[in-house]
Design a protein around this nucleic acid. Structure first.
Lengths: 355, 355
DNA sequence: GTGAAAGCGCTAACAA
DNA sequence: TTGTTAGCGCTTTCAC
């Protein structure tokens, strides 16, 4: 009991083609016919088959989104943006999660993404190797990358070098000269360009300010909150407690060693971790040490974290619109860099006088 | 230049049917033939069409996951679990994001999910109304709900009443009698059962301990970090700073009014917010006030938050396996409640003596 | 172990 | 404005 367009053709006494046209509301069909067809379709509980439509048209009305891992703030937000735009356009979203280092990236590529199930691909922060690019090119689908330039592919995202520069400028304008950097490869271990670009931007900007980067102050925060805490501890010494409002200033710990007056983190999640570690080490932020991040994470807003904020949701929307346009035959022009701006809140201030 | 099974049939001199069989590795095909076909397919850069296969078989090898919103810890984790299991089985995942209150829930339902694009549906924490259920039933797809029982549908998830009870028991065993509750409807405003179940569980457990629930201590934390902060401020008084390690005890603020000795939050994200608010109000956790949550959020682990932890990833996997089995003709038996267990960390302790 | 033929449910010329 | 006729690319009886 398949229940297809045919049944409703029989019931209405129309032909399959007319029913098909009516269902899609094509203008060449009499309004009365459209109404009738729609009514009958409803009564019959007709459910269209995207597979059949896709086969016939060659269009699946779906786009694939490839993420290295899902449980990162940026990916979730960007995914939301892509989704919103696709829904507006009546497209479905097929999620391809490479699932981190254990995820068997190769198989994921071959097995599904190539199956003509989607009309276009949005890649989140992925740098593909030659083989992967070649395989994807096979499908001739429009493709775009969000976050981090990918050789040979269009991309939308902030200019990470510039963003890092904005952060360093802010810190320097406050008078900081001893600034540490917490970044590192994404924990998932996927091949992502962003971390490196931000580190380069940091080093570049520091140099531009006539400052040097101290090797021991460039730490790996694994782009996660926990990683940020670890990095902060390495910087400020061990934990002291819950970071609550407790006793006076001179807590113990290794924090007495020479330490930076500011820490620039390549993501807000890491910055949050560094703030926590600082507090746990008995340091006040920003009195003893300034901390800032990149992103515009909601938690940072609540906590008062200074950051260079970007809008991944908007980036997702832009990317989706771009590939959709390309699917519709538009030529693929380059996209402008997405905006990012300094948001000064409560975790940055001038460095302490007494050193 | 379509590049289909036909081309490779021509090249190999075999028939379409044999090629089809070979490509799927069916046992009725000579091994040598399989090898040959696979090789030629590779050389030709053959890409199968899931639409065509789907049309012919009636199976799309894809399952849909419906989420109220994506950017919540639980949904992201559960989605990851579902995805992992689907990938294992060679299924694709189609994401249907209802997109919160503004998301035009109805249209989203009709327009896409019903299109036979998927073989089954996993609903995250959604309570459907009659109409929605009826529409979905139309497709005759296996369906399952993760998180929160849904009338008429199978579900996987913790027993929220029990979970709340575990939390209350822990607090009471420490000697707390004045415990507040922070919960509330999910910010997204979707119709979700979990918040209510947890509140009921809280009230029930309190009563079981002979304690009463004070109306003014039942707050709405919107299931978010920011909401938790707001609730905490309502409980403890206004903010005082960054929550850093600063000065002595007697900060100002409304915190002098009578306040609970413990706060039970229906999610870790809210609990984190409450902890922050407490610290900002000059209170020490857990010396002045105990705080605990539900979930097992990574941030909570780092911060030392006591919680009743659950495993949404595992729940996602279970759900995926269940629908997949049903797709394969298994009978849909009820699933056992998912495990949850108390994790005592550093945010709960006996209530302060002096009141 | 392989081939021939008949669809799966829909869309798209081309006519009428 | 509507109907006719072919497919879209694959799977699947049923023969061989």
């Amino acid at each position: 009991m398949p229940m297809g367009i045919q049944e409703i053709a029989t019931v209405t006494g129309l032909s399959k083609s007319t029913v098909s046209r009516a269902l899609r509301g094509m203008s060449s069909v009499a309004d009365s016919t459209i109404d009738q067809v729609r009514r009958v379709a409803d009564e019959l509980g007709y459910v269209p088959s995207s597979a059949a439509a896709g086969l016939a048209t060659g269009r699946q009305r779906a786009v694939g989104v490839v993420v290295p891992v899902i449980d990162r703030w940026f990916y979730v937000k960007a995914l939301g943006g892509v989704d919103a735009e696709l829904r507006r356009a009546g497209y479905d979203l097929v999620l391809y999660n490479l699932g981190g280092p254990g995820g068997d990236r190769d198989r994921a590529f071959r097995r599904s993404m190539l199956r003509h199930r989607v009309d276009a691909l949005v890649l989140l922060s992925l740098v593909l190797d030659e083989t992967e690019r070649a395989e994807l090119e096979l499908t001739r689908h429009p493709m775009i990358v969000i976050g981090g330039p990918a050789p040979g592919l269009r991309n939308v995202g902030v200019d990470d070098v510039v963003v890092a520069g904005i952060a360093v400028d802010h810190l320097c304008s406050l008078g900081h000269r001893d600034v540490a950097y917490v970044g590192g490869q994404d924990e998932a271990g996927m091949n992502v360009a962003v971390p490196w670009l931000r580190r380069d931007g940091f080093a570049l900007a520091m140099r531009a300010h006539g400052l040097s980067v101290r090797e021991e102050w460039v730490l790996d925060g694994r782009f996660s909150f926990a990683g940020g805490v670890d990095a902060g501890r390495a910087l400020f010494g061990a934990a002291r407690g819950l970071g609550a409002g407790g006793g006076g200033g001179s807590g113990g710990g290794a924090g007495d060693a020479v330490r930076p007056t500011a820490v620039f983190c390549a993501s807000d999640e890491m910055a949050l971790g560094v703030v926590l570690a600082a507090q746990q080490a008995g340091l006040s932020v920003p009195e003893d040490v300034s901390v800032m991040g990149i992103d515009g994470h909601e938690y940072g807003e609540v906590v008062g974290l200074t950051t260079v904020s970007q809008d991944p949701v908007a980036q997702g929307r832009v990317a989706a619109r771009a590939v959709l346009a390309e699917v519709d035959g538009a030529v693929a022009g380059p996209l402008p860099a997405s905006p990012a701006h300094l948001v000064v809140r409560a975790t940055t201030a001038a460095p302490p006088r007494a050193r």
